[in-house]
Amino acid sequence: MRHSNARTTLPIARRPLGRALLGGGLMAAFLAPSARAERRTLRTEVGEVQVERIAQVEHPWGLAFLEGDRFLVTERNSGALRMGRRGGSLSDPLEGAPEVYRYPGPTDRSQGGMFDIALHPDFNQNRTIFLSHSRWTEQGAGTAVTRARLTEGDNPRLEDARNIFMMNNPDGSGLHFGGRLAFDPRDGSLLLSIGDRRNMNRAQDAKDHAGSIIRMTTDGKPAPGNPFLNESDKDHHIYAIGLRNVQGMAFDPESHQLWVNDHGPLRGDEIHLIRAGRNYGWPYLTGGRDYSGAPLGEGTRREGMESAFHIFERTVGPSGLVVYRGDMFPEWRGALLHGGLAARALVRTRMANGRVVGEEWMLRDLDRRIRDVRVHRDGSVWLLTEHEDGEVLRVSRG
């Protein structure tokens, strides 16, 4: 494995357990605010930014904003879903969440657990959410999606949880689940990334969900218009193939283009602009090498396959992705913001004339593995740090 799970201490105070109110008079166990400093000022190319710790969360993976100042956050290792608020409270795990599968043994042999969360496009009316996670079947483990309804009131919980999708060909590997979710703003279809399950050749099989982007309806069926719907020798859920382990996926709010970042092997992390039915080349196309240092693949171009939009020269370990279109940082508009696990940074790729023209590795002074990146409606950037003592962080204008 390339990424260490070693703990690092962020110089922002840790919160003790306490009791607090969550909007609407709801009572639960919360992490209470600390009396010590909760903010840091850090420099970036656009000037100073404020980094505020919102909550402490164990190995957080996915984040979704609710109304007002509330949010939902997943915990990978524990399989928990929690509700929090910017004021500093975090609930106990919500009841009704699906069980997740964790490969037994050392942490570095298991990347399974609870992954991403996405709100239904009509969430304000139907209160429906979607969770991606690892799931065990008699055939083995794989990436799955559960649909549930969030109910609040005196005891917030999930109800009517139902598994709507399970990848085909599950196996015994605890690695490369993918797991990122994104709703297409054009038609409301749900997209899911699935890793190659550490078996690289599976990514070239259009009948196998491993190493692909899946596109489905909110009931888990193949979405209308999928590229292989009329081909009997290909899987009807598949939208694109040839990917290694996509953990960052986002639609541009303006152009509605679909962007992903993909883990390379040893170096060679990539950015792809995803189009229906395309093959993105893994393991034939890669800018990286085998973990032994030996050459891997055939280079970065091959007929019938899509070359990477951009290959990072340094190892990022990308996870989490947004196309920034907010107002708080106008200098960042149109840039891709990537969480960096190996980089321990928020990586900004500047775009111009349809290509990447520069990178900025921001917030490295935090020395934290960044798992997810989201843009709040106020234009601030929220981050999740992947540690046992991980955090929800808010980045705002200095």
Rank of each mutant, 00 (worst) to 15 (best):
D184G: 07
V51G: 07
Y324I: 03
D290T: 06
N226T: 03
D69N: 15
E48H: 10
S212I: 10
R15Y: 06
E95N: 12
M249V: 06
G79I: 11
R202F: 15
A294W: 00
R369S: 03
A203Y: 14
M166E: 14
N279W: 02
S91W: 12
A342P: 08
R394H: 00
G79V: 01
F329P: 06
L72Q: 04
R325C: 07
G293V: 07
L296G: 00
H387V: 01
G340K: 06
M83P: 04
I54V: 15
G288Y: 02
R162Q: 14
Y324T: 02
D327A: 15
P156E: 07
T385G: 03
R314C: 01
H263D: 02
V347C: 02
L72I: 09
V347G: 00
T9I: 15
R244S: 00
S307Q: 12
A182E: 05
G68K: 10
D262V: 09
S380L: 02
G340C: 05
R197G: 10
L119R: 05
I370V: 14
G18T: 11
V51P: 10
T146C: 08
I311H: 05
K207Y: 13
W332T: 05
N353E: 15
L158K: 07
M216H: 10
A141L: 03
V375F: 08
L17N: 14
H263K: 11
A342M: 12
G195R: 03
H310I: 09
G84L: 03
H376P: 02
L31E: 13
R275M: 06
Y291Q: 08
R162E: 13
G179E: 01
N126P: 05
R135D: 02
L90W: 08
R162V: 13
L21S: 10
P11L: 10
G379D: 01
P253A: 04
F65Y: 12
R314W: 01
S319A: 13
D269F: 03
M216R: 10
R348M: 06
M249L: 12
P283V: 07
R85P: 00
H338V: 14
E152N: 00
I241K: 08
P156H: 05
H236T: 09
R278V: 06
D252L: 05
A148W: 01
T217V: 10
V49L: 10
P330I: 15
F30W: 11
Q50E: 15
W332L: 14
S232L: 04
Y103V: 13
R333V: 10
N353G: 14
G113R: 03
R394D: 00
E38I: 11
Q257S: 05
R364I: 02
A37D: 10
N163D: 11
L366E: 08
H387A: 11
R374N: 07
V395A: 01
I238Q: 08
R278H: 12
Y239R: 03
E99M: 11
A203D: 09
T143I: 02
E45K: 14
A144N: 04
R180P: 01
W382S: 04
S232Q: 09
K234W: 10
G288S: 03
R15C: 09
G398P: 01
A6T: 14
N124V: 12
A342E: 15
R350I: 00
Y324P: 02
D372T: 12
G268E: 02
E152P: 04
S91D: 09
N261A: 09
P60I: 04
E388N: 01
A32M: 13
